[in-house]
Design a protein around this nucleic acid. Structure first.
Length: 188
DNA sequence: AAGGATGCCAACCGCTGCGGG
DNA sequence: GCCCGCAGCGGTTGGCATCCT
């Protein structure tokens, strides 16, 4: 294997948070050409990103059918059951949860479920660890952090996690929904 | 009011499997 | 049969927001 990458090309590959412009380019391109070979998409669309990066961005964030925001108690229950059955097969589990991505489920599991399970264990788990119960509290009860914190990461990602996405999608606030409501994307 | 700690999410990295040449 | 490239998956890390002391 000779992985010689022309240094000039390597230098052009962008990493890190996606900008609004990049998102727009990717959405636009896929809207017009459909999904295909990701490396080609990245190149053809003029994105200085790896195909991998484009794919991830698309699947986890930009896809129109991706559901963002709180995991519902029903979904939590399902995740628990499926994880008990399949283990860390996140993509497999995600397929049972329409609109949810493996990344989201994985994060959910790691940050909340796993922690609660640990906590539950150390607390002599009273009965069923009442994970769903507790978790639903954070879901329904609107955990302070459950929603808006990640906004900053992507810089441009003023996300709306919660269903009640920031209607203030003006100026610096934009959402994926804003993209998909653009006529040029839906129509053409 | 300031600083530190914690939580959460997005993105990257490395590995594996599959298909095509 | 072997090699190469691509896609997909799971694990890990980085960074921002919020909460607590």
């Amino acid at each position: 294997m000779d992985k010689r990458i022309s240094s000039s090309q390597e230098a052009e590959v962008r990493k890190g948070p996606w900008t609004m412009e990049e998102d727009l380019i990717l959405i636009n391109y896929i809207s017009n050409h459909g999904e295909g070979v990701w490396n080609n998409i990245a190149r053809s669309a003029g994105l200085n990103r790896t195909g991998k990066s484009c794919r991830l961005r698309w699947l986890n964030y930009l896809r129109p059918d991706v559901r963002r925001g709180n995991i519902t108690p029903e979904e939590q229950q399902l995740i628990m059951e499926l994880h008990a059955r399949w283990g860390n097969r996140w993509s497999k589990i995600a397929k049972q949860l329409p609109g949810r991505t493996d990344n989201e489920i994985k994060n959910f599991w790691r940050t909340r479920v796993q922690k609660k399970l640990k906590h539950g264990e150390s607390q002599s788990m009273n009965g069923s660890t009442s994970l769903t119960d507790e978790a639903s509290t954070s879901a329904g009860g609107l955990h302070p952090n459950a929603a808006g914190t990640a906004g900053g990461t992507a810089g441009s990602d003023q996300q709306h996690a919660d269903g009640n996405f920031s209607t203030e999608s003006s100026d610096n606030f934009w959402t994926v929904d804003d993209f998909w409501s653009m006529p040029s994307l839906n129509g053409d």
